[in-house]
Write a protein that binds this DNA or RNA. Structure first.
Lengths: 129, 129
DNA sequence: AGCATAAATGAAAATGATTTTCATTTTCAT
DNA sequence: ATGAAAATGAAAATCATTTTCATTTATGCT
């Protein structure tokens, strides 16, 4: 008689997901780990990585890449936004990208791509720098 | 009297660029290095990386990312453009980003940023994949 | 030619994110 | 309460990329 292990609960997944939410829905594994540490949560870095992988395979989070190659995880369905980054001081503003969304959609259709995502970022010098 | 070292020639840059061309204009640093090794060229991995960085800062090549985060270098037509990349086979289409340019300009003005640039990339699965 | 100087080179070590290993702990149908 | 399978996490392994530093090379000057 076969056991059914379908309903195993992971203690970590919900905590990692919750932390990602509180981080603005946009963070790297290392950042999530450090955040949880700082808040006194007991979890291992390995588990953070595994939780994020599992959340990604369930399509609950998206995986993007920073310019330096570090993976950043983004809540799917959560407010999707872009960044305006100052090259001088590193200050970052979250911005809306309505026109970019439209642009990406149109282009993707034009070339017959499916399962489409995009990245867009603006960088320059802020008033202070 | 100040010397003028402007015209120093790197032996490596042209060789790396040439190898990237022969590799189909789309390869990682490690791949370029291995290719040059196999062909008996004498060059160090460090130098391959440095040449690619320098070619990138001269806008002769573009830097993209594989899904696993590895950097891939791509010969660039020169004009400013964006990319539509297939997550499956890596096929890349250069696309126009007129709306993105406008969007970036408007946002930058709104927040008082100057000396502004941007990146934008669309990724998904092409018809074949 | 010969010298001085700064850039270019590359081997080895360092870095840093991510994955793997493996021993231990937890979960849950029975 | 039991036991099989999954989850966990510390430490080690991986792997791309960067840094260090000693050596070589290119170039301008005399």
């Amino acid at each position: 008689m076969a056991y059914c292990w379908e309903h195993r609960l992971s203690r970590s997944n919900p905590r990692v997901l919750n932390t990602l939410e509180r981080a603005g829905g946009f963070a790297s594994a290392q950042e999530i780990y450090r955040l949880m540490q700082r808040e006194g949560e007991s979890i291992g870095l390995t588990t953070v990585y595994r939780s994020l992988q599992s959340l990604a395979s369930e399509k609950i989070v998206d995986i993007l890449r920073r310019d330096d190659g570090e993976a950043i995880f983004r809540l799917c369905g959560g407010a999707h936004h872009h960044h305006l980054v100052c090259k001088g001081c590193g200050d970052t503003v979250e911005i809306e990208g309505g026109e970019v969304e439209k642009w990406a959609k149109v282009i993707a259709e034009e070339y017959g791509f499916r399962d489409v995502g995009h990245t867009a970022e603006i960088f320059g010098l802020c008033e202070k720098c």
